[in-house]
Design a protein around this nucleic acid. Structure first.
Lengths: 214, 214, 214, 214
DNA sequence: TATGAATGAGAATTCATTCAT
DNA sequence: CATGAATGAATTCTCATTCAT
């Protein structure tokens, strides 16, 4: 090793991210209360004390994990939904495809599970999750539904409930993967589910081709 | 404690049930790890030590709570689904109505939330829940779908996925109530949701009146 | 069964003895603190509450166990030693034989082990054990030694220390059986040990045939 | 606590030893089960939690105490016995003198008492004690006896039993000190006991001066 | 007498948090 | 910044003892 070269590079900027990643892993495996800071520190490759340089308390770290994971993915989708001029059916198929990707690749499922499990202990997180994830998507989607209804594409009915009809199986698929697959249950083919589900619900929602004219 | 008052009464028959009820309340509020046996005992009106007369460990008690709450409600519904000669649409409407009742009145939602939150720490419970609740209902329902397909009532398609389409919003509604309502979010009107959802999905699943002839 | 005959005879007189026997077994297996009254009660075939009809506390029961086991055996031996007109060597051989029996058959070893292990927690028992067992035997034996010295049979020397020389291997043999045999160590042949030991020590203690005249 | 005083000092090198010393004191006073970690921690001047930095469980600590105390003293004695070319009588007198010192100064007696008292609860310790202490010494000593017999110094007879004859009073003296002295019984003068005992037994074991020739 | 459900004071153990280094 | 030894409050679980039956 050449003299003058530091033995290790200081990467304090990267640290919080590494810690959050480790914490996400441990929290989503054990739940908040059963997760040990020792484990998180070990997984992040830092000392236990170092956690406290970046996060005030365990709860703080948990909050950071949740906040960190939800923001980026959804906002873009919601924005896209709000502006898209596509026919409703195409929009849904597109959104489903995109969401399937986000879910399959990301840790959104794990975080959802955590938020559900700890919702009573961390009401603020349930609130944040609702405001930042659910409410945003719900607003965008029900807006799209209402717009489609206005255009005569979608039948009358409560737009929100339509969105729940669309989104429910998504949640089911996500939690199935988090809860049942680890204990040996056969996974749901999320793509197939969404494909069939889209067609079924769209069939039920869309004004039929000849219907408007009749 | 006033003299003359007995320190405790002997009521061994009722105790386990009272304890389980108290435990369900506390567990579903705090999650497994954060729940304190002190609280459960206090809520059940017994001493901490008394818990150990009926349950070996905290985990045991948790298991008992989950097992106790799942069995009774679902089996009957599943049996009914399996034997009913009703047209598929009517069957679904009936089942949805019944399930809405069970969910609204019972503690199934709270238990579901617990199972989801603690699934990694209690894989056995996830398994039991899957076998005793999910698998039973899923089997009965997809059987009904397949039968309806055989009768020409329902369009082709994977029966399981059809069931997920039907059931997803149910789960969404249940968890919404458990997770979001306690933090001030407006409740979903479960009945309205199921009513609209049933019509939407049935519209998408059922062979149309004239379709068969075409 | 003839009518009028009670189904079981009440044997309250026998109870304390049965309890003590059970307690001896459990105490000598676990030590005082680790012994559970549940186990003792179960072994005695009575309820836990019944123990308190006969003994005030756990300590009381322990004391009873120790007292019960020591008294009967030793007193007779001591009395015999004090009065015997036998030559010293014959006396020792006789006493050793008798003690070997008592030890092999009785629970003296187990009690000794308990008294040793719990001596700090039950100083009174150490005291009782010393007064009722050790002191009595020591007095009788050293008296016999002194008498034999007076008769010219035994060489000069501290009679007490002579008794320790005689008794030490006995203790060793007893504890060996209690401590090492249960973990798989080869037992000591107590009879052979005492036989050889008697000859060795007597050889060292007794005035030789021609010695007195010299 | 006065401000400016550090709440604790970092002394990881010395800690385990201090804890073991404290634990030996408390265990030998109370026995394993009745000893409280609170007391051990207080005596060691550390917090209860600190114990768990060095020992996994209470049992672990107990094992460490026993193991720590036995090894150093005996091995050297045994080695010495095995190689010494001294006449048997001189060897015994030397060994007795050395053992008297070790016993008087060290905590061997306390540990022996603990091992005896807890032998059923910690069979492994009885085994370790046998293997590391008893077996080693027994082997060395009976080897020396056999060698002396081969040289014509010692009379025929089972060498092991000879060793028991020699060692028994030693054990008696040690336990007397541990068990009886604390309750007010007059101590045995260990040196005097060993001195007289050595002469008595040697007299019984050694071939007499003129005996060989006769 | 006898039972065994119920109690409640402890005890071991864990772990978030602090702080000397 | 970073470490990790040390703390101590909190929590589960045990068990001698009591007491309604």
């Amino acid at each position: 090793m050449p003299p003058g070269q530091p033995k290790w590079r200081r990467r304090s900027e990267a640290r919080p991210g590494e810690i959050i990643a480790a914490a996400l892993a441990v929290f989503s495996e054990k739940g908040f209360a059963a997760a040990r800071l020792d484990d998180i520190a070990a997984r992040a490759g830092v000392s236990k004390g170092a956690l406290y340089l970046y996060f005030e308390t365990k709860q703080d770290l948990f909050r950071a994990v949740v906040r960190e994971t939800i923001a980026p993915n959804l906002a873009t989708v919601a924005a896209f939904v709000g502006q898209s001029p596509l026919p409703f059916g195409d929009l849904i198929r597109l959104v489903f495809a995109r969401i399937a990707e986000v879910i399959t690749e990301g840790r959104l499922g794990a975080v959802a599970k955590m938020v559900i499990g700890e919702s009573r202990n961390f009401p603020e997180l349930a609130k944040v999750w609702h405001e930042d994830v659910v409410s945003v998507m719900l607003g965008a989607m029900s807006g799209a539904v209402a717009a489609a209804q206005a255009r005569g594409e979608v039948r009358p009915g409560d737009p929100q409930l339509y969105v729940f009809s669309l989104a429910g199986p998504l949640l089911l698929g996500v939690l199935w993967r988090e809860v049942f697959v680890p204990v040996g249950v056969k996974p749901i083919d999320l793509k197939a589910l969404l494909a069939q589900h889209a067609e079924v619900v769209l069939q039920g929602m869309l004004v039929e081709a000849g219907e408007g004219r009749a």
